[in-house]
Design a protein around this nucleic acid. Structure first.
Lengths: 158, 158
DNA sequence: TATTGTTATACTCTATAACTATA
DNA sequence: TATAGTTATAGAGTATAACAATA
């Protein structure tokens, strides 16, 4: 306990350092952090507005404006699925895919420098821990919308 | 290299998780993340506007508005030092100190849960690494303004 | 009636540029 | 002239509440 007292606040500071660098990298690709994260979540598969809002941790109405701006720039596109004309499915355009791919690579290259003050083996161990902490979040990103929509399971089962 | 490929992006995800929880804790104390971080930086000693802007990673003019809002709520106070009437020294009020103290404790209590998916010994090692990564940032917070103002050193020396 | 998404409104945060007061 | 900070303006992000269209 004693030598762990500042851990929570250290975590916040680490995230500030990461976010600062992330914002810089995003800016180099003409994106805000929020826009970049939206593109990343959308990178591998389309999402509905509701699910996407949940994944990003924002309210649906906030997402509408977010999508307006990034759609205006031609990086994502809205589509209305035939089976439910209330819904909107969001996906990245070819340009969006290209940009998010470059961003991803740039983050992978420039972000690890954050841990450069650690000895090599500790860096390795740290990367491992970070991967294990964030793994559930990745799974959530893929499964959460199924959890909330039993019908989707039925469709798969049927 | 191979098993490290996603490290940079994992770090970003970790920081998103931390920031989300941090925002929630701050909101429970009626603060935005930015306001909370400003109070934390100001917690132990007063700062000038310029130095504070640098510590927070924002431009001076952005800081003016930030301080306006949080001063209006009585959590910080502006003062003009006699030796340079252009300058403004910012410090926390008694109320500000009380609130930032409670916030700090709450963060320390609720944030470590982020690593709950790791086994105990790995949590310990992880906390250790985070402390070592953020330590230079803490030092910077305390020393940076001296670096930029040689006169301060002279005053101490004299 | 319930659900999906959007609009209206308001506030915080941030950047650029122009400005004021002091040194 | 240079420096410390503020004001003006604009845009992004976010929340609450009211709304429209569809199921």
């Amino acid at each position: 306990m004693t030598d762990n007292e500042g851990f929570g606040n250290d975590l916040v500071w680490l995230s500030v350092l990461v976010q600062r660098r992330y914002a810089q990298i995003c800016a180099d690709h003409d994106l805000t952090s929020t826009q970049a994260t939206l593109l990343c979540v959308l990178k591998d598969q389309p999402q509905g507005m509701g699910d996407l809002a949940q994944l990003l941790g924002v309210a649906k109405n906030a997402l509408s404006g977010l999508v307006d701006r990034i759609e205006r720039r031609g990086l994502v596109q809205r589509e209305t699925p035939e089976h439910d004309r209330r819904a909107v499915t969001l996906s990245t355009t070819a340009l969006g895919k290209k940009i998010v791919g470059a961003l991803y690579a740039d983050v992978a290259e420039r972000m690890p420098d954050i841990t450069s003050t650690l000895p090599a083996d500790e860096q390795h161990q740290f990367a491992n821990s970070v991967a294990r902490i964030t793994a559930p979040a990745h799974r959530t990103a893929l499964l959460e919308h199924n959890t909330n929509h039993p019908k989707a399971d039925e469709q798969i089962a049927g």
